[in-house]
């Protein structure tokens, strides 16, 4: 049994896909929690889904980061409840300051929606322990603002601490400029906090979690969460 809470903002549009993926993999029901609520129900995992929360007003994720529910999400995450942010959820995570950096307009200025390759550079986080370190996986991206930026100091710290979780690469795992879809510094596609319990990523694992969708490389994000919770309670 694993209790998952998916936070739903006005404009979220991957929240139901996230629920379907999480329920299929974990076999446990997922609670959908509205942005205006004051409290997240007791849970083992919290997820900030993709979409266009608050219409991307001001900056992507900026308004959602200040919504009522986020006070409790931030408090629970700081107290140790694992938190995954995907796409717009990653943007929200950065706007809260739980993870460093910012996501800017893609270097091409185009909305990009396609499958991309990436390596899993850290398989010791709560959400990636079912991947192999350095493994190349294919997960779709779908965003206009996924160009990860952080100060040189922050990037050096992320790299030094092994907190880059996913990195855009070619089909054999080289993080080349050509394999960088959006201009992200150091090809960064996803990062974690120091504990590995907070992970933010632009790619959408819920969009490739079963064969009927065309691939299963995203599935292990959810299997990792299940494994992490199960392992902690046995």
């Amino acid at each position: 049994m694993i209790r998952t809470a998916v936070i739903v903002f006005p404009g979220s549009n991957c929240d139901r896909d996230m629920k379907v993926a999480m329920e299929a993999v974990t076999g446990s029901p997922v609670a959908m929690v509205w942005h205006g609520d004051a409290e997240v129900p007791a849970c083992d995992v919290m997820v900030l889904p993709g979409g266009f929360s608050y219409g991307d007003y001001l900056r992507c994720g900026a308004m959602a980061a200040k919504s009522p529910i986020m006070r409790d999400v931030i408090a629970k995450a700081k107290a140790g409840t694992p938190l995954l942010g995907v796409c717009n959820g990653f943007q929200v995570l950065l706007e809260t300051g739980l993870l460093p950096g910012a996501l800017m307009r893609n270097a091409s200025l185009k909305f990009i929606c396609r499958d991309v390759h990436m390596t899993c550079d850290n398989n010791e986080t709560f959400f990636t322990n079912c991947y192999r370190k350095g493994e190349v996986v294919t997960i779709p991206i779908a965003h206009h603002d996924g160009n990860y930026f952080a100060s040189d100091d922050d990037v050096a710290r992320l790299e030094g601490d092994g907190r880059v979780v996913f990195r855009y690469s070619d089909a054999v795992g080289n993080a080349t400029p050509e394999a960088n879809p959006n201009g992200s510094v150091a090809n960064i596609a996803g990062i974690s906090d120091a504990t590995g319990r907070i992970v933010g990523m632009m790619p959408h694992p819920e969009r490739l979690f079963e064969k009927a969708l065309g691939g299963t490389d995203g599935r292990r994000v959810f299997e990792s969460a299940l494994f992490s919770v199960t392992e902690a309670t046995t």
Partner: peptide
């Protein structure tokens, strides 16, 4: 500081 600007960028 709190909302209008993202002082990271």
């Amino acid at each position: 500081e709190k909302l209008l600007a993202n002082t990271v960028i």
